[in-house]
Design a protein around this nucleic acid. Structure first.
Lengths: 138, 138
DNA sequence: CTGATTATAAAGAATAGTTTTCGTGTACGT
DNA sequence: ACGTACACGAAAACTATTCTTTATAATCAG
């Protein structure tokens, strides 16, 4: 919250109710929602909020490094309130997206930079498969 | 080519001129094109080919394991004639997609499975950054 | 080789996710 | 409090992809 306000001010962006609400919603969930899901969650409380505003705010937050966008198979972006790069697990059955926290990929970037000559700014490590819950159910 | 025909026959799919042309196009490039790009490349030679056919053929090839789809930032799929999973390097400046062949990620899947309990079917390892060419130019 | 069968192709409409436009409203420095 | 630049909301536009219908072509049986 404070981080949002500080970052917006630093970048001469206005601090609006909508931006606060969208940021809060994302920070308070582990579900990696998409723009639509965030919009639906906010609608009851803020009936006049617009989906376009959600999209624009999310885009802004990404560009400010406050959150990260993740590219799941389905052609729709999901968002993660944690902007630190980390691998994601995506269940091919229930479509949930989870973080993989204990990742042994700490210095992957350096390795890749050394091998490729690229100056890596961002990574996207997605693993697709059946989650334990779905495996059990079937 | 022979692999395409054999695989199509094994799966009781028809061997058509269009499918051969699409597969060939993809196998003969390192550019990781999207459906539109493949369509445009084929258009001069096959003026009646349809974009929908390109989409459907690519989808079929992916489902048969002949090629792989890669999810780049921009909301559009790119295709890779090499179906073996391997990391990709995406230049944030010129948008080209390259393969990272000498990858030290051989047994990443097993590690992730052990850590998460997921049954990993597929992975997507994308690294975004400036390629050496673009770095030099600026 | 010929015709029947059936999967596939083409065309264009439809859809979903996202972005843009534009008029109005609001945050915030002065 | 005022003015202005930026942001918001609503609707329309756009883009990648999928669906639907009809026509065509690949394969198989004879």
């Amino acid at each position: 919250m404070n981080r949002l306000i500080a970052t917006l001010k630093e970048n001469e962006c206005k601090v609006t109710l909508q931006r606060i609400a969208i940021y809060e919603t994302l920070k308070n969930t582990k579900a990696h929602p998409n723009a639509e899901a965030i919009y639906k969650q906010l609608s009851p409380k803020y009936p006049t909020i617009s989906l376009a505003t959600v999209y624009k705010s999310l885009e802004l937050f990404v560009s400010l490094g406050l959150i990260q966008a993740i590219n799941v198979e389905e052609n729709s972006f999901r968002y993660d309130g944690n902007s630190k790069p980390h691998p994601h697990l995506i269940c091919s059955n229930c479509e949930k997206v989870e973080d993989l926290d204990e990742h042994p990929f700490a210095d992957l970037c350096q390795e890749v930079e050394a091998l490729s000559g690229y100056n890596i700014e961002k990574q996207q490590l997605n693993f697709y498969g059946r989650c334990p819950d779905c495996t059990q159910k079937s």
